[in-house]
Design a protein around this nucleic acid. Sequence first.
DNA 1: CTTTACGCCTGACGGC
DNA 2: TGCCGTCAGGCGTAAA
Length: 271
Amino acid sequence: MPELPEVETTRRGVLPLLGGRRVSAVMVNDGRLRQPVTRDLETILVGQRLRDVERRAKYLLFQFESGALIVHLGMSGSLRVVPASAAKLAHDHVEIEFGAERVLRLRDPRRFGLVLWTADEPSKHALLAKLGPEPFDEAFCGDYLFDKSRGRSLAVKNFIMDGHVVVGVGNIYASEALFRAGIHPARAAGRVSRARYESLATQARLVLAAAIEAGGTTLRDFMRNDGEPGYFSQKLKVYGREGEACESCGGLIAMQVIGQRSSFYCGKCQR
DNA sequence: CTTTACGCCTGACGGC
DNA sequence: TGCCGTCAGGCGTAAA
């Protein structure tokens, strides 16, 4: 599922293909996403030039001349750029054509994604206005996490997955960052030391950066019509590895459901 | 205020 | 082989 690295990889994949081009056609094949796709999207977009593609949290912001298209990939969404002649895949719900050779197609089998138009500054949109800092923002640091977590009893894993605390740390990378920082995922957020939060912030940034780096090698896949574009197999140390040996101590990796989410960790290395 | 539960949706997978 | 139940998961919202 798209986590922040996949979304950023998507941004980097589509921007050079579509940036500066004008929309020639829009097709909404199925507008029933998490929220209904903005009505009259075709009327709004056709003729407009795409100025930039930005990212805030896991939202992609397609900046046009008179506003922005906010796109979220949800659980199963993916974007690719193909010629109009390319066969449509099942669940290609929205298509934005920038000339016949470059059609942006949103595929989303589970339809948890989002396609919304805003004429205003996207950061003012209700979905984005209250989000915490980006993990690569200097505001995201050990002191920030320490101060923000005082008095909080929820598990540290749920704490760092809260978009009001920091954005873009989903279930996979929360497990990975906590393993690298040696912090048990179920530990109360308010009982993690300042120094360990410093390590957590650093490790979160490192693992996300490595995943984005890995994604860079698959950018060409955005032009393919088969398979999942722009995604990549990231070397994960604990996620999905229940029962396997911890690469650090050789102990067994455990799985525990924390806050309704599967969490993977090494009980020896993480306290 | 914090915390928890749930719904949205469909493909994959295990059990029978 | 095929049917069916369960699970996965980001994120907003309602409820406790």
